[in-house]
């Protein structure tokens, strides 16, 4: 009986790494599954068992342990961090002139991938029907570059860096054009590209770019990378040795997660995680208020 109980405890709390597969991969601690266990959801019990331990916190990355939470919920946070935390990104590109060899659509796509430093919490979502952006939902950037010959270049030089001026267009050339009161409101915010050395295009004398971009709030862009690893590579090497494989048992604790979050630099990683948790809460709230409003009909 005691052995059976120990086995049950293992099924509930461990994921077993076998030689040819993973055992007990699914959560089974639901009411009715195990006699003698109260598996009904209990917030007090959850609060008592749940803990977080911050291991590292840097400007653009952090690592922490989250213990006492089901994989379904931990995975929801991970998924939101990867795909659903809002950011400001270049959405509309107005090309007034582009005589470079980069085609308009390729150029627009390249611009759309540049991470923009601007706190999305300070902006509203832009109404998709709205033609014109306003100060509360849009950041306007300008890229205006013209390449010319360098009059001071030596005659026999063949180095483009010496021969031409402004022939390399970098993300640092994107200039912020404040709308309305933005210049005052965001005076200390350093709105612009996160990285200033992203090469956008190369020009030759006479070629020019004249582009205006609108950045809007959206959830399309990747803001973070999350990986679960800390020296734990989940190695099953020991199971390849016949003399050892029957002597060891490899298990992983089901409710212990190691989060490593790398930010693209727009928001600090701890803010991203907090935002992700709030996104999941607002998803719940969205359906709760829908239930409430339909009850009144």
């Amino acid at each position: 009986m005691a052995a059976a109980m120990k086995n049950v405890e293992e099924i509930r709390s461990r994921v077993i790494l076998g030689e040819f597969g993973v055992k007990n991969a699914h959560t089974t601690d639901f009411p009715g599954n195990y006699p003698g266990y109260d598996d009904t959801w209990n917030l007090g019990k959850f609060q008592k068992n749940f803990r977080i331990n911050v291991v590292q916190l840097k400007e653009n990355s952090m690592e922490f342990d989250m213990v006492g939470v089901d994989p379904a919920i931990a995975n929801a946070f991970r998924r939101i961090l990867l795909a659903e935390v809002p950011t400001m990104a270049i959405e509309k590109v107005f090309i007034y002139n582009n005589t470079s060899i980069v085609q308009d659509e390729v150029l627009a796509h390249r611009l759309g991938l540049i991470p923009i430093r601007a706190d999305p919490r300070l902006f509203e979502y832009r109404n998709s029907a709205a033609e014109e952006g306003s100060e509360i939902d849009t950041i306007q950037l300008q890229l205006k570059v013209k390449c010319s010959r360098n009059p001071r270049a030596s005659k026999d030089s063949s180095d483009p860096r010496e021969l031409y001026l402004h022939h390399m267009v970098y993300s640092r050339d994107l200039k912020w054009m404040p709308i309305g009161n933005q210049a005052d409101v965001f005076a200390d915010a350093f709105i612009g590209p996160v990285h200033d050395d992203i090469l956008i295009a190369q020009l030759r004398p006479g070629q020019e770019l004249d582009i205006v971009m609108h950045c809007v709030k959206g959830i399309g862009e990747k803001v973070a990378k999350v990986v679960n690893s800390r020296l734990d590579t989940c190695s099953r090497e020991v199971l390849r040795h016949d003399d050892l494989k029957n002597l060891v048992k490899l298990g992983r604790i089901r409710d212990h997660f190691i989060f490593t979050v790398e930010s693209t630099g727009i928001l600090p990683p701890d803010v991203l995680v907090a935002e992700a948790i709030q996104v999941l809460m607002s998803k719940c709230q969205r359906f709760l208020s829908e239930l409430d409003s339909s009850d009144m009909d």
Binding site: L43, F50, L57, M66, V69, I277, M281, C284, L288
Partner: peptide, 25 residues
């Protein structure tokens, strides 16, 4: 359905409070 949404939201609130406390520490 309603209870599940409420429970999940409450759990998230606790995760958020704990996370922010540990980060501040």
């Amino acid at each position: 359905f309603r209870q599940g949404l409420t429970d999940l939201s409450e759990a998230c609130q606790h995760v958020l409070n704990t996370f922010q406390a540990r980060v501040n520490e």
